[in-house]
Nucleic acid binder design. Structure first.
Length: 293
DNA sequence: AAGAACTTCAACCGCTTCGCT
DNA sequence: AAGCGAAGCGGTTGAAGTTCT
């Protein structure tokens, strides 16, 4: 059995909106609001349109303070940052860019920004999503002019772990910028800092939205998972293959990470990462990285 | 000049989530 | 707790515009 249609398809107009229809919808919503019911709205407003279509037209085109046209460098940077972190969750990305709609950002990403970023890296389209996301993270780091985490003494697995640790901080709302400063001289510690406070009232809605989406626990598990003949690392939505055996990984990752906040930041991320045998099945050694707000 | 190829973006579709009963 | 309808969301489509040959 198919899904019940949301409206009477036969008596509903489809396709581009005419200026008259736009005016009707705009006038009606400005006078009466949406009434919390998009399905009933078109009939009340005298429109032969599906409620979903009206909602989309209003949200993406007619509502006040919509910004169209060229995206700024800053907007590009935010989009790249968030895409590298959370993927194609356009509504969350849009919530960080005033006046931009999720549809706009999605179109911009698919038609321009992706090509702009990948101009120097052909064949990315052929890769799967997690590979793409990893590469976007690397591109994003370069774009932010952060020095790449060059840790020549350590192996690729260590670098991958750095990347994942960094991306965890990236999951913070965009106003919680971070800075990664590898500091090998200091006992294999990696220092992170945030440069903005997350407590100002105008940011609280975004913070709440972030906590809603990522949980309030402030603790995430890093799993080293046996995959076929090798090992992989999984972290939230991230997965990365590792080219080392368990003992090598253990040796490489068994070091402490300290996340230090700058004096101006009221958030207090703290972290340590210690790989250890899983007491339950012994096959999934876990590291824990903790941070607190 | 013409039409093929490519690009853009508004709009649609259908699945998931939310909130009410 | 379950069921249902509406809202929200992301992937996809296709018409219109632009560029290329």
């Amino acid at each position: 059995m198919g899904r019940a249609p949301c409206c009477d398809k036969a008596n509903v107009k489809k396709g581009p909106w005419s200026p008259e229809e736009d005016a009707k919808l705009k006038d009606f919503i400005e006078k009466y609001g949406t009434g919390g019911n998009w399905i009933a709205l078109p009939q009340k407003a005298g429109l032969k349109r599906c409620g979903k279509s009206c909602r989309l037209r209003w949200l993406n085109y007619l509502r006040p303070n919509i910004k169209h046209g060229e995206f700024t460098e800053e907007e590009d940077r935010i989009i790249c940052s968030l895409y590298a972190t959370i993927g194609s969750r356009w509504s969350i990305i849009a919530s960080q860019l005033q006046g931009r709609t999720d549809n706009d950002i999605k179109n911009y990403w698919n038609t321009k920004l992706k090509k702009k970023l990948l101009g120097s890296t052909p064949n990315l389209n052929k890769r799967n999503h997690s590979q793409q996301q990893l590469q976007y993270q690397q591109l994003h780091q370069q774009q932010l002019h952060f020095p790449p985490l060059q840790l020549p003494q350590l192996s690729r697995a260590f670098d991958q772990f750095n990347s994942l640790a960094t991306s965890t901080l990236l999951q913070c709302p965009s106003y919680l910028r971070y800075e990664a400063k590898p500091s090998l001289e200091d006992g294999n510690m990696i220092m992170f800092g945030s440069e903005k406070s997350c407590t100002s009232s105008d940011n609280m809605a975004s913070l709440e939205s972030y906590l809603y989406n990522y949980g309030t626990g402030g603790t995430q598990n890093l799993n080293i998972v046996k995959e076929g003949g090798g090992y992989g690392m999984s972290w939230g939505d991230h997965q990365a293959p590792l080219e080392h055996n368990y003992e090598e990984i253990k040796q490489l990752v068994n070091c402490n990470y300290t996340l230090c906040n700058t004096p101006s930041n009221s958030a207090t991320p703290t972290s340590s990462c210690i790989i250890q045998d899983d007491p339950v099945d012994g096959l999934k050694p876990q590291g824990k990285l903790m941070y607190q707000f």
